[in-house]
Design a binder for these strands. Structure first.
Lengths: 254, 254
DNA sequence: CTCATTCGTGCACAAACATGCAAATTCGTG
DNA sequence: CACGAATTTGCATGTTTGTGCACGAATGAG
């Protein structure tokens, strides 16, 4: 095992899981804890992670405290992200939304996958810089700081010039009558435009979003072609959606 | 076995497996480790791979080391960043380039400053999410991973719709005859467009850039209205520039 | 407070390294 | 083919780097 391999593995694990424990790494890589600690110390010195007692956390210099939110991504979001990433085929053009679940998709893209990712989230763009083969198209506009995505007329105009295969949409609420809803007016507009630019719209529905309603309507459920939910969700809850012809993917815990 | 054959085999293996261990190659090719090491040393000198202890890895310019670059910003870049940030007045619209120096500007913006920042760098955008009062306009386009900035026709079109007060430009080289130069063709185009959209163009010239020349010309020095350099630079070095009517700000170490 | 982990440092040993040199190989030229 | 020059290779040398262990200090949980 090459030293630099080990370091890379540490950083990859950190990006995917959001935290690492020295003892676990030691067991997983068959190497002494001292060496792991040394690695963590030096990676921290390069600013690539932040040390904590017992292990390390991401420092993500480009992500500030938004990083904090990213790393408390629930297991559910990671599972959904992994399932979504697995749906992407070679050569496709996919749209990734802002939001923590979409970040999980980006982190789980297979490293050999040749595809194009369109996104209005600078966070996703920065995340994908490290991916060796994925091409990234960044949608510009006025930055809506709360969600860290570009919005506004310029964003929508640029989106209209794109034809994508699949849009993975994050929402605040998905419910039978109200349809897809979110917490910001501008963001709703952008999501609608993104959906219109994609052949398929797949909603990333972590369980707290199901049957929740937010103030601003993005689109009715007819705009949705698929949903990804975790396998814990009861099929009874999903019945209204599958009745509308929406393909439901139940993401399996590994 | 011919030398060039062996080297080709090394590079092929590297591309295929993503890493190379000197000892393995030695066994596989029935050749001493010394010779392998010599090969690796020379291939590294040609930039075809990156040496690590025990073997080699792909040179992959886009990989990970951008995050590292951000945090090893020299003192010089920090004081240039601080000086640039201090020049921005309330209500102004400023353009921030990609690059490590521009990140320093973003980090030194006074927290009460109400201004608009235009940028084609997702890194800068994410950085400024934490700023309470600055508005951010993100320029989209195809992501150029090496510099982590948006480039291409869509980027330039969007830039043309903006009228900014000041553009803080990062360069790879600034020199009297060649003018402003950088290492990527697309990036040069974008920088030229940004300069055209701003009333003033101020070049961030850390000392290693002064009198350096890179392959792609951004613009002649006539496009420049000001430069920021660190106070260590000799005024003799700057004479050719001030003679052209360029205002030179010498950033003071605190 | 007490106590079990976790950390950091000094140290010893092994692996990987650069360098100089001589033998072996390849190449060019007549 | 012959022969000298240039290159390539392997080995010996001393140096640097990575690893694990020991021990005392620091940290966090109960």
């Amino acid at each position: 095992m090459l030293t630099s391999h080990r370091r890379k593995h540490i950083l990859d694990t950190l990006r995917k899981t959001g935290a690492i424990i020295a003892k676990d790494l030691s067991a997983e890589l068959n190497i002494s804890e001292d060496t792991i600690r040394r690695d963590l110390r030096e990676l921290a010195a390069e600013g690539l992670l932040q040390r904590v007692h017992g292990g390390a956390m991401p420092s993500s210099p480009a992500m500030g405290n938004f990083a904090a939110r990213l790393n408390v991504a629930t297991d559910e979001k990671k599972i959904i992200g992994r399932a979504a990433a697995a749906m992407i085929r070679r050569g496709q053009v996919v749209i990734l939304d802002g939001g923590t679940t979409a970040v999980q998709i980006a982190r789980h893209l297979p490293s050999e996958l040749r595809a194009t990712v369109v996104t209005h989230s600078p966070t996703i763009a920065v995340e994908l810089v490290e991916h060796p083969t994925v091409e990234v198209i960044l949608i510009g506009g006025k930055l809506f700081k709360h969600s860290v995505v570009a919005v506004g007329a310029p964003a929508i105009e640029n989106i209209s010039k794109i034809r994508a295969d699949t849009y993975f949409m994050g929402v605040t609420g998905i419910q039978a009558e109200a349809g897809l809803t979110t917490g910001d007016f501008e963001e709703a507009h952008v999501k609608r435009a993104l959906s219109a630019s994609a052949a398929e719209t797949i909603v990333l529905a972590s369980s707290e979003k199901l049957n929740a309603v937010s103030p601003y309507v993005i689109a009715p459920l007819s705009a949705v072609t698929g949903m990804i939910v975790s396998d814990q969700v009861k099929s009874k809850t999903l019945a209204p959606f599958s009745r509308l012809g929406i393909t439901i993917t139940r993401a399996q815990r590994k």
